[in-house]
Deep mutational scan, measured.
Amino acid sequence: LNLKQAKEEAIKELVDAGIAEKYIKLIANAKTVEGVWTLKDEILTFTV
């Protein structure tokens, strides 16, 4: 999975969960695949 694909998957998951745009922007700015997954997990843990 490359960075672009990771971001697309994570953003789709966050949108489906009804997460606010400000958190989705954090994913869009992530620099690594690991960073994308870590941010996604943290956002889902603390906002859902």
Rank of each mutant, 00 (worst) to 15 (best):
1 L>H: 11
1 L>F: 12
1 L>C: 07
1 L>Y: 13
2 N>W: 10
2 N>H: 13
3 L>H: 02
3 L>N: 01
3 L>Q: 01
3 L>K: 01
3 L>W: 01
3 L>M: 04
4 K>D: 12
4 K>F: 08
5 Q>G: 06
5 Q>M: 10
6 A>P: 01
6 A>G: 01
6 A>W: 04
7 K>W: 03
8 E>S: 08
8 E>T: 06
8 E>Q: 09
8 E>V: 09
9 E>Y: 12
11 I>Q: 04
11 I>W: 05
11 I>H: 03
11 I>Y: 05
12 K>D: 03
12 K>F: 05
13 E>I: 13
13 E>C: 09
13 E>H: 08
13 E>S: 10
13 E>Q: 13
13 E>M: 13
15 V>W: 08
15 V>K: 14
15 V>M: 15
15 V>S: 10
15 V>R: 15
16 D>Q: 14
16 D>P: 02
17 A>P: 01
17 A>N: 07
17 A>E: 04
18 G>T: 02
18 G>A: 04
19 I>H: 03
19 I>S: 04
19 I>G: 02
20 A>F: 05
21 E>D: 11
21 E>S: 09
21 E>Q: 09
22 K>Y: 13
22 K>L: 08
23 Y>P: 00
23 Y>H: 04
23 Y>M: 05
23 Y>R: 01
24 I>F: 09
24 I>P: 00
25 K>T: 11
25 K>W: 10
26 L>M: 11
26 L>F: 06
26 L>C: 06
26 L>Q: 07
27 I>Y: 00
27 I>K: 01
28 A>F: 12
28 A>G: 08
28 A>N: 13
29 N>L: 13
29 N>S: 14
29 N>E: 12
29 N>K: 08
29 N>Q: 12
31 K>V: 13
32 T>V: 02
32 T>P: 00
33 V>Q: 04
33 V>S: 03
34 E>N: 07
34 E>P: 04
35 G>Q: 15
35 G>F: 07
36 V>Y: 01
37 W>M: 13
37 W>G: 06
37 W>H: 10
37 W>L: 13
37 W>D: 06
38 T>S: 13
39 L>D: 00
39 L>T: 05
40 K>P: 00
40 K>T: 06
41 D>G: 07
42 E>S: 11
42 E>D: 08
42 E>L: 15
42 E>H: 13
43 I>D: 00
44 L>P: 02
44 L>D: 02
45 T>K: 15
45 T>R: 15
45 T>W: 13
46 F>G: 15
46 F>K: 10
47 T>L: 15
